[in-house]
Amino acid sequence: MSGDALVTIAVSALVLGSLYAVMALGLAVVWSSLGIFNFAHGLFMTLGAYVAWQVAAGAGWGLWPGIVAAVAAAMAVGAVACELLVRPFLGRKDVVLVAVITTLAGATLIENGVLLAWGGRPKQLPPLATGTVNLFGAALSAHEAVIVAITPLILLAVWLFLGRTRLGAALRAVAQNHEAALLMGLPAARLYALAFALAAGLAAIAGIFLGAIRFMSPAMGGDPLLKAMVVVIFGGVARFAGPVVAAYLIGLIEAVSTYAIGLYWTPSVLFLFMIGTLMLRPQGLFGGARR
């Protein structure tokens, strides 16, 4: 393996890792606070990308208003999805199963809604920055360089929000002990909606990242959701660092595997990896107790 190839793999791992970190963090926030797995998460990403496209390219108002609109729209849809798809079932014994079913149905709903609103023709978002950047001899697009650079800032912002603000503390309190949080007078329903809105907003940002790299389609969220699922299982949700570190590791594994054994085998490797993690360490690599 030449030095060039190593740099190419490293750069590719960083780009993938950034994308997966932003995607997986939202999934982890919802899982740790509500104890459910949200299969509609990929569609928040799709929705974000399409709203951004509509404002930026469709209406021609530029990318930044598009980003703001996309995050706002995704957050609103996220909160509504929580109210309609998850919260009515939270007390039920089979809530884990029901939530899978209702969020899958929600995903179908949003995907076909996007198809009706924007059609099936592939679209592409304008990049966050134009041109190419040279990094240790590997050329990557400026858009990808921006992704790699601002992802740590986004992660830091979420970490500060969860760890340093009263609202973030309330969210963690509901996640750790639902009854105690209720007794302290925390508005659990609104905090759950907040968790969903936060997750959906992050997914929308991931959608904007991806929408300028690949073509957008109503089904574009499916693959990133599966990758984020592998990441969340691998890292566990008990700590903030779990899914973040796991995202970059999975990005690295994917980049190495794509280089060494090809694009077709790589998804199989990742799913084998996920099954292996679940068999040996279901709480995840960095998980303490399981929830």
Binding site: V230, Y264, F271, L278
Partner: peptide, 25 residues
């Protein structure tokens, strides 16, 4: 065998995806 609840959903879902990926590849 070793898992419960949501982990069973995820491991079986991953298995289905694995089979799909093998078929496609």
């Amino acid at each position: 065998l070793r898992l419960s609840g949501i982990y069973i959903i995820l491991v079986t879902f991953a298995f289905a995806q694995l089979v799909l990926q093998l078929v496609v590849s």
